[in-house]
Amino acid sequence: MITMKEVWKTYPNGVMAINGIDIHIDKSEFVYVVGPSGAGKSTFIKLMYREEKPTRGTIKIGDEELSKIKERHIPLLRRKIGVVFQDFKLLPSLSVYENVAFALEVIEESKANIRKRVMQVLDIVRLKNKARFLPHELSGGEQQRVAIARAIVNNPSVLIADEPTGNLDPETSWEIMKILEEINDRGTTIVMATHNKEIVNTMRKRVIAIEGGRVARDDAKGGYGYER
């Protein structure tokens, strides 16, 4: 599903974030990306949804090679990839329903389809009864669930999560993880960058550890491996 070959990324200011990464992630895999702050985790994630371009090397998602995608076709790629962030990135003036529907509005879905799909995903994240609420009326965990609903409403084949539990307490974090696991069970590939040792050690999945812009460890059922 996701293949990186000899990927290097040096920022214009000279920071060498990624220094030769080779990685392959299969369809329906669930992968944690761990590593100390500043090790290149964020860049690694950003390369996947084409927020950043590699300086060298190739990245493929499905059949598409990201560096060959024309600037104006990036939106088409983004529709196949769901992205979830630590700070949720919801639009404060829109209701839960509208926030999720937004992702379908931009691809000009019909109203009836939008309604159907939004209600489906709100059901998956168990927020159907709060569809009319505004983001600030929800708890952090609920807001993150809205963000997840928005990320998967397009039926993307890959869901990329950058520290999705970073702002949440342990209990809420587990709620989010359960939902992510459910989504993964439906066949969506999930790549999740995290600092959460407890989660990585308990819900055992493949772990890719990045240090100094390289893959330091890649275990099929590894633990967190860092002492915070």
Partner: peptide
């Protein structure tokens, strides 16, 4: 700006 960023992340074209 934030709204535009989110629009781009969910796959809105520049035209949109």
């Amino acid at each position: 700006k934030r709204e535009i960023q989110i629009m781009k992340l969910v796959g809105a074209t520049n035209g949109f």
